[in-house]
Design a protein around this nucleic acid. Sequence first.
DNA 1: CAGTGGTCTAGACCACATG
DNA 2: ATGTGGTCTAGACCACTGG
Lengths: 267, 267
Amino acid sequence: MESLDEVENPDVIGSHGASDLSPWLRIYRALRSEILSDDLPSGSRLPSEKQLCDRFSVTRMTVRRALQALQQEGMLIARKGVGVFVRRTPPCYQITDGNRFIDNITAAGDTVGTTTLSIVRERVLAEPAEALKVPRGSRVIVITRLRLINNEPTFLNCKQLPAPLFPDFDAVYAKRQSVDDVYRHHGIDSYRRRETRITGGFATEEEARILGLSVGAPLLRSRSVNEDDPGTRIEYSNGCWPLTAVEFVFPGPSENIHQPNGSGVQE
Amino acid sequence: MESLDEVENPDVIGSHGASDLSPWLRIYRALRSEILSDDLPSGSRLPSEKQLCDRFSVTRMTVRRALQALQQEGMLIARKGVGVFVRRTPPCYQITDGNRFIDNITAAGDTVGTTTLSIVRERVLAEPAEALKVPRGSRVIVITRLRLINNEPTFLNCKQLPAPLFPDFDAVYAKRQSVDDVYRHHGIDSYRRRETRITGGFATEEEARILGLSVGAPLLRSRSVNEDDPGTRIEYSNGCWPLTAVEFVFPGPSENIHQPNGSGVQE
DNA sequence: CAGTGGTCTAGACCACATG
DNA sequence: ATGTGGTCTAGACCACTGG
């Protein structure tokens, strides 16, 4: 930075530099490779933007252009007044549909933690009402939880349970923060996934804060419905993940056989 | 802006203006609402950045901050040297796993088009080889296609078929661009989805160009494997969608029954 | 060629978090 | 009080596209 010696400081490119990259892209790649190589470890603070300006001999805006791309990808998270940090690189967790959350994660040797953010009772809204097949305006228990994988906030989840089915919810849930316990206590020994929907979206301010992402960061959203053995809908669940933190695996419905027909030009 | 009259020009806020929004956020919301209200119709060109600067009485960077957010969300697409355009707002298409692509779309009254971008034969790579259960280095037919929904590029898809299974591929496919035709011709009258995987990612330069997105725009990626009735893997498919253009629907595997156990604190 | 968006400079003020 | 990131100004040059 102070020395312009290009041999000792490869980040500064001179007129004969072989690099024809945009300055911001050069910075992007430099920082990205340092993150991936663990040269900038997970959770560590980057040099301040001003320091990066000196190091790369550019103005703040150019540095910020690079930092922005890395934030967008979830590799960095900026905290105003504090600094820019390397986000614990979320490996891509495989979630197989229908398996219990904890089984998916622990099977791969990762640890799971849970923080219950809130439990409230509300009148059900239109969409969950339809999914749960309960009357409009009936009561649901709304449980918002943050799942931590290897101590990193990774999955923000909001479950809605028909309140009349679980009169003892609070007492049972309080013991071990386990929804399965609640089910068992109310006579539900087995349940199954009725439907799962996956779509994409962008982090609200609240989601970004809880998951440690930048506002507007892209997310994967999942909505699912569980039913018990007789077929009563017992849970509507809404969750979001950092875009690249998860891969959903859906084993094929083996009964779904296609009969290719000749009616359309495209299959 | 020539006139500072706030009554006639609500985009210019004065010292007593009620708005305490960031300038860029104000511009973002103004443009967004004009897009959503069809005041700026799909496909239309926005005023140039310079014109927007005048209208909102800010510098180009502030306008660009707003445009950038809208591009990120897939509402706008900028073409260098030409202008910024309203991306045909992708409604969220519901794709039910296991159904044929065209059936998903046409059932909702939308039209489907197909452009075959390339057909090549290659030695299979590691991942598709494992998915297809074919030997490393064996031959696959690689078909890259762009699916248009209501004439908008919406789904970029790359299929790999074991070449030995489909010796007459080219002749049959050429007739109607139909992979189903190819299957039928080779004696496969029915097939099924073996597995689907959903994850997120970011558009490469090529993907962005083909789908009409900005480079680095967030995507939903799907990988799936089909097998025929006896269970032979016949197709490995890799696709991507603009993040908010699709909702994947997975009907529950009804055989997947959970037995909640008491071993873990969290379910 | 003129107009567009993509990029960059060199400043500046602010809100915020921390010591 | 200091340093941080968030935002904004007022310029500038470039590559690209289109007429």
